[in-house]
Computed example of a mutant assay.
Amino acid sequence: MEFEGAFELEGVEPEDAWVMLSDPIAVRDALKGCRYITPLDDEDFNFDDYEAEEDVETLPEADPEEVADRAFREETDYAALMQVGVGSVKPRFETQVRIGERDDENYVMTATGSGAASSSEFEMESWMEIEETENGSRINWGTEADVSGRVAQLGNRVLNPVADKIVNNFFNNIEQQMTDVEESDEGGVTSRLRNML
C-alpha cells in the first residue's frame, strides 16, 4: 500500500516546521493513538513495562537545549507504541522505527520501520521533505507499507480513509503547536534551537 500527500502550514517557516517535526515529544503529542516514541537503546525493550513521561514540555515552554538533545538522530532506532482504530479493529502496534537520512539543510528525513499487533503486522518506508511556499511551508510526505493479517483483510477501502484521518489530524495538531510557538517566540527560541540541531 502506498500513501502520500502534502500539507500546507500557513505562516510557518520551513526551518520552524523542521524543528517541530524533529522533536519526538511534539510528534507523539500530535499523533493520535501514540503512547510514546523513545530511543531504543536496549535489545530487550519491553513495550508493556516502559513508562512514558507524561506532560513533557514542548516548544515554546520547553528548554531549547532539552529539545535539541532529544531530537531525532540519523541512523538511530526508536520504539513507538501506537493504538489505531481501523473499523471494528483497534490493534496496538509495538513498532520499531529507524531514522535513516536526516538532512538539516534541505529538510528531508527518511525512516523505515515495522510493527506487530495481535494478528496484524506491517513494514514501512517513509519520507518527508519540507519546502518553502509563498505563505509558509509545504510538507510533502509518503509511506509505502506492507500490511498483513487482520488489518490487511479490511482492504484499502477501509484503510485509506483511516490513514487520511490520522495524517490530517497529525498535521493540524502540528500546525496548532507551531502557531503557539510563533505567537510566543519573542526571544527567538526556534532560531537558537535551529542552530543546535
Rank of each mutant, 00 (worst) to 15 (best):
A68G: 13
A30N: 06
D23F: 02
P60N: 11
G149D: 07
K32C: 07
D180V: 05
L154M: 15
D185A: 07
M1Q: 04
S137T: 11
V86L: 08
S22G: 10
A71N: 09
K90S: 14
S184V: 01
D103H: 01
E54F: 01
A79L: 08
E8T: 13
D69S: 10
Q176V: 05
A117R: 01
L154I: 05
E121S: 10
E54D: 12
T38G: 04
R92V: 12
N168G: 14
E125G: 04
M20C: 14
R98S: 08
E74D: 03
D69H: 08
I166Q: 14
V147E: 07
S114G: 11
V84A: 13
P91K: 04
Q153W: 04
P39M: 05
C34Q: 03
R194E: 06
T143W: 03
E132F: 03
L159A: 06
R28D: 02
D55Q: 04
Y36Q: 02
F45T: 05
M128Y: 06
A6G: 08
W18T: 10
S118G: 01
S137G: 09
M178K: 06
M124I: 05
R70L: 08
I174Q: 06
W141N: 05
G142C: 12
Q176P: 12
D44M: 09
V19G: 04
E2M: 14
P60R: 09
G115I: 03
E131Y: 11
G87V: 09
V108T: 12
T58G: 01
V158T: 15
G136M: 09
S118C: 05
E66V: 07
A17I: 08
Y36S: 03
G85C: 01
G33S: 04
E4P: 05
G115P: 13
N106E: 13
E125S: 09
D42P: 14
M196T: 12
S114H: 09
D180I: 00
L154N: 09
T76G: 00
Y50F: 14
F93C: 00
N172E: 15
N168E: 15
G155Q: 07
V189R: 15
E183W: 03
G188H: 11
E121F: 02
E144A: 12
R150D: 13
G85F: 00
E183A: 14
E144L: 13
V19Q: 02
D104F: 01
M1D: 06
Y36M: 02
P91W: 00
